[in-house]
Amino acid sequence: MLSATAALASEGMQTDWSLSPTYNTIMSVAAGAGLVTLVWFIRDLWVKRERNIEGYAFAFGVLGFILTATGLHMTLTWPIKGLPWDNIIFGETSLGFGVLLAATSWYLWRRREDLRTTDNPVRTLADLVRPISLFVFGLGLALVGIGIAGLWYQFFVAPAEEPISGLFADYPIVEAIFMSGLFFLIALGALLFPWAVKREAVAGRPSTLHRVAGGAWVLGGLGFFLFGAMNFFTHIGLIFNTHVPS
């Protein structure tokens, strides 16, 4: 089945990019960094005596602002006209994650001294986020839906005019498997989240459950981080190759 993106590519893609701004590059880098940093933060709370609460609050605040601002704009305005599903896939998920990171930043800054001195900061945070774990689980279900849609419709394929990624324009299943796989990895961590923050789950050292969830977020986060960084080149190349001269 030929995807919509590949069909556009086969016709010789020409786009007025001023009518379809795209910034899922910075969103991908920020989301990937946020997932990895979140796992680093929990690991440091569990194993380190010196707790750099302010540093993590600063990091989550920066990343949360980027994701909330860009995700909110993409969710409300649908700026990507040619690939409208991207507004849902990247906009709504970035908005949800961005607000969670921003709220985490605010809480960490306010309670930094308490978290630095408490015997079990992981349990303190687990008690805090347990009520919101249902929303995190819901985001996990949404990511599963996105991953299935990516495999079903194969819309993640890049057009032939895009450097590197465009090499697979005739094989849409390749990028569909890669991108959907990243969404499935992050979904796994989100779906395990409600059980990972149970009071009895954080009484001692990290369990297999925590390692699986954390590992899924690190792998998925690194994938989005590196792919987003690469797309700063490939998206510029796509725009250069397909823009409509004024």
Rank of each mutant, 00 (worst) to 15 (best):
D127R: 08
A201M: 06
D86V: 13
F240R: 14
N241M: 07
I132G: 06
F224I: 05
I53P: 02
P159Y: 02
S10C: 00
A33T: 05
L192G: 07
G150S: 10
I146V: 12
P206M: 12
W40F: 02
G220P: 15
P172C: 09
T5A: 09
L143T: 03
F233W: 14
P84G: 08
A169Q: 00
P79S: 09
W106F: 02
V144W: 09
L95R: 12
T124F: 13
S180W: 12
L115I: 00
S20N: 05
P84F: 01
T25Q: 15
L226W: 09
L128N: 07
A190Y: 07
L143I: 02
G145C: 10
A216F: 01
V144Q: 13
G147Q: 08
L182K: 04
L101E: 11
S28L: 14
D119L: 01
D16I: 05
T117D: 15
L101P: 02
I146W: 10
L95W: 08
V99Q: 08
F155M: 06
I148P: 10
L191A: 02
L188N: 07
E92F: 10
R123A: 13
L192M: 11
I177H: 13
G228M: 06
I177G: 03
G181M: 12
I164V: 15
W217E: 11
L83A: 15
A203I: 07
L45G: 01
A149R: 14
F97W: 15
A229R: 06
L222V: 02
A102R: 07
R116V: 00
W152H: 14
M1P: 07
P206W: 04
A201T: 07
I66S: 05
V122T: 11
V129K: 08
Y56L: 04
R43I: 10
Q154I: 03
G98Y: 05
L2Q: 11
Y23F: 13
P245E: 03
